[in-house]
Simulated assay, not measured.
Amino acid sequence: MTGEEKILKKRIREQQVVHLMISLYCRKKHGSSKNMLCSFCLELDEYAAGRSENCPFIKTKTFCSSCTVHCYRHDMRNRIREVMKFSGPRMLFYHPVLAVRHLFSTVCSRMKNKKTV
């Protein structure tokens, strides 16, 4: 697998996880169906996908929360934080493989950052 393919795969995975978290939030908070998002959540989902699509740091970062540059607008950053705070713990029940993979990546990233300091 080439470097470009790895980056594309990473970008797609990140977009899928964010979409799943927004979908879970929307279903539980706004009562939407499993395959539909309300307009409020759809706007956030499209915004997050656009930010991920244009991220210049995708090669080196693990997640947006660990990025040195926060490219989200202030209002959107607050909305995505709310979604992550709500959906994060619930992902273990709805998407356990993704939740464990995310936890593992976060721990590895923090350990790597401690070694470089």
Rank of each mutant, 00 (worst) to 15 (best):
S105D: 15
K10A: 11
C67V: 01
G88Q: 02
V18F: 06
S109W: 03
R51A: 12
C41F: 07
V117T: 13
E46P: 02
G3P: 01
M1Y: 02
R27Y: 01
E5D: 01
H95M: 05
S52G: 11
R73C: 07
L8N: 02
L92G: 00
Y94F: 11
D45S: 15
V100I: 05
S33L: 15
K59S: 11
S66E: 05
T106Q: 08
R101T: 11
Y25A: 03
R13S: 12
K6P: 01
S39P: 15
C55T: 09
K28L: 07
N54I: 12
K29S: 09
H102P: 07
R81M: 04
R79E: 11
F86A: 03
A99K: 07
C108S: 11
G3W: 00
S66D: 02
T68P: 03
E43I: 06
S32T: 15
I22N: 00
T60A: 05
G31R: 04
R90T: 02
V69Q: 14
N54H: 12
C38V: 11
L42H: 14
C64W: 04
K112V: 12
R13V: 03
M21D: 13
L20E: 10
V97Y: 05
M21A: 06
L20R: 06
K9L: 02
L98K: 05
C108H: 03
S109A: 14
M84V: 05
L44M: 10
K112E: 15
D75A: 14
K28P: 06
E43F: 06
I22H: 01
C55I: 09
L44N: 13
N35Q: 09
L42A: 11
S105W: 02
H70Y: 06
L103C: 10
M21G: 05
S65Y: 00
Y47W: 05
N113Q: 15
S65C: 00
I58W: 03
I7M: 02
Q16F: 05
Q15A: 07
L92F: 01
M111H: 09
R90K: 00
H74Q: 10
H30Q: 10
D45I: 05
P96I: 06
L24R: 07
S105Q: 13
H74F: 03
C64T: 04
M111P: 08
Y94C: 14
G3E: 13
K9M: 00
V107M: 10
R27F: 01
